[in-house]
Simulated assay, not measured.
Amino acid sequence: MAQRWEADREAGFGRRLGKSAAELGLSDNNPSCPDVWELDNGDVVVIGRDLTEHYTARLPDGVSVGSDERLVVIPRATILAAKDDLV
């Protein structure tokens, strides 16, 4: 049986994956914008809109959001820009 994954709260930000929201034209240079970052331990952080309450009742069968998790939405352009950095 695989060991349960836990987020390392001590990991630091390593590098941005893709482009900033400003580079993608998704921002007016506001620092609170969607983003994708690789942490120094290899895990990934996604900064987006917390829409957990809006989607929880519509989750597909077999999908759930834990009490310590959030469903975060980011623009398609943000994840597509990160594609080449994800290996």
Rank of each mutant, 00 (worst) to 15 (best):
K83V: 10
S27G: 03
S64C: 08
P75W: 02
D35Q: 12
L86P: 00
T56R: 15
E6M: 04
A7M: 10
R9D: 07
L24C: 04
V72G: 14
N30S: 03
P31M: 05
P31G: 02
A77W: 01
E38A: 07
D61V: 04
A11V: 14
G66L: 11
W5C: 00
S20F: 03
A7W: 01
V46N: 04
A82F: 10
L51E: 15
S20T: 15
W37F: 12
D43H: 14
M1T: 04
T56N: 09
L17T: 00
G66V: 04
P34C: 06
A2V: 07
V45W: 11
E23K: 01
D43M: 08
S64H: 06
Q3V: 15
W5T: 12
R76D: 14
P31Q: 08
D8R: 05
L80V: 00
A82T: 02
P34Q: 07
E69D: 12
A7C: 07
L51T: 07
L24A: 06
A22G: 04
V44C: 14
D40G: 04
R16G: 02
L86H: 07
D43P: 10
R58D: 15
I47T: 00
V65L: 03
R15T: 14
I74K: 02
E69C: 10
G62T: 05
D35N: 11
N41K: 03
E69S: 05
K83H: 15
E69L: 06
L80E: 13
G62E: 00
N29I: 04
A77G: 02
G42N: 06
V73T: 09
T52G: 07
V44N: 08
G14A: 02
